[in-house]
Design a binder for these strands. Structure first.
Lengths: 196, 196
DNA sequence: TTCATCGGTTCATTCACCGAACCCAGCGGG
DNA sequence: CCCGCTGGGTTCGGTGAATGAACCGATGAA
């Protein structure tokens, strides 16, 4: 751990939080989870982190209760990582960090804009819906109700497929699409037998 | 840098922010700056970070425009580190991190509570003043208007003097007090000839 | 049988962090 | 003048974490 023992004696909730999410790559993993990334390979492609580090971070986040690892297919056995309640509660941290970088680091253009999905309004500086007519006017919009749209600073033609998928407007938390391995059965669009 | 080159190619304001404040100790330095810590020795005593690391972080934060280093006495020459505008804008990040740790890490008691200094009300989850009668009701309270009070999880008798000073309720950003080196001139309180 | 994919683990190298020691300028006292 | 103290660092050897390339194993497709 980057912080471990050293922050342990700190009498501070901020230090406690940093013990969990303060290591290199960790907050970017959580960010990607909000964007809909769930699989090891997708995190890997999008982050560019070393494989060993990514594996360690995912495991640590599962241990900390930020991510939940769950089986999404049996054969071959494959797991995905999804945000828990506690993980979802990290959204204000990411929003604040992103807003600071956009507003306070010179030469940073807006990369991604966040809109209230219900009314289409771009969220205010505190993550609240600023639309006077909206039922949730003035209150913080939960991540599941946020639509992410590309901003001016985003590379329009990125190399990796995950970044390309994230160029389109999308609801937060909705998983990235993946072709089932045998993609081309033109007349039978592969109905999943039972989701549960 | 903990992140440097690796995050540079990331098309993301969050990653950009983490390049600046994502390294070990950095956000705790900024936190202490909000609490009123300004001197190298006080950061050192309160954080317990290695001296070299602290010096590097302070320098990096100055370079990034988060802290401003300025002379507060000429003889001997002594500098202090104070938050810039951009540094003050990090308050929502720290508040969100602290709130997450307090609410989502099991066994964490509130360490510090933040109140609107004007009306005494404890701030809401978004850092806003929840008091209906307050002129700034519902709006985010700037750090300069926040009073910090000790919470239940705080060690009532810490070892280092900085932690002890931070036990008393205090306004954010107000510098820690320091005795002038020659303290006891009872009738002649050492008027500095000319400050400039 | 062979190949490809997914999700890792292993390993040697590099890098950052650690903490103790050292350094230096500017006082203040004798 | 010399000594020691204080504040604010720098230097340095040892250690642990990050890196990236290679390897591994299970499954399923060709």
């Amino acid at each position: 751990m980057a912080l471990g023992k050293d922050y342990a004696h700190q009498q501070c909730s901020i230090a406690r939080s940093l013990e969990v999410v303060g290591e290199r790559w960790t907050l970017l993993v959580v960010r990607d989870a909000f964007y809909g990334v769930r699989r090891y390979g997708d995190f890997l492609a999008h982050l560019g982190a070393p494989r060993a580090v990514l594996a360690a971070r995912l495991q640590a986040l599962v241990d900390a209760g930020v991510l939940d690892r769950r089986r999404y297919q049996e054969s071959p056995p494959r797991d995905e990582y999804v945000l828990t309640e506690a993980g979802l509660a990290l959204w204000p941290v990411l929003r604040a960090l992103g807003a600071w970088g956009r507003d306070r680091i010179p030469g940073t253009l807006p990369m991604r804009r966040f809109h209230h999905a219900a009314c289409g309004t771009e969220l205010g500086p505190g993550g609240e819906c600023p639309s006077a007519g909206c039922p949730s006017h003035g209150r913080a919009v939960p991540p599941a109700d946020i639509e992410m749209r590309p901003g001016a600073g985003l590379d329009p033609d990125p190399a990796d497929p995950v970044s390309r998928a994230l160029l389109r407007p999308r609801r937060l938390l909705v998983p990235l699409e993946h072709e089932p391995p045998a993609g081309n059965s033109p007349a039978a669009p592969v109905v999943v037998p039972d989701g549960h």
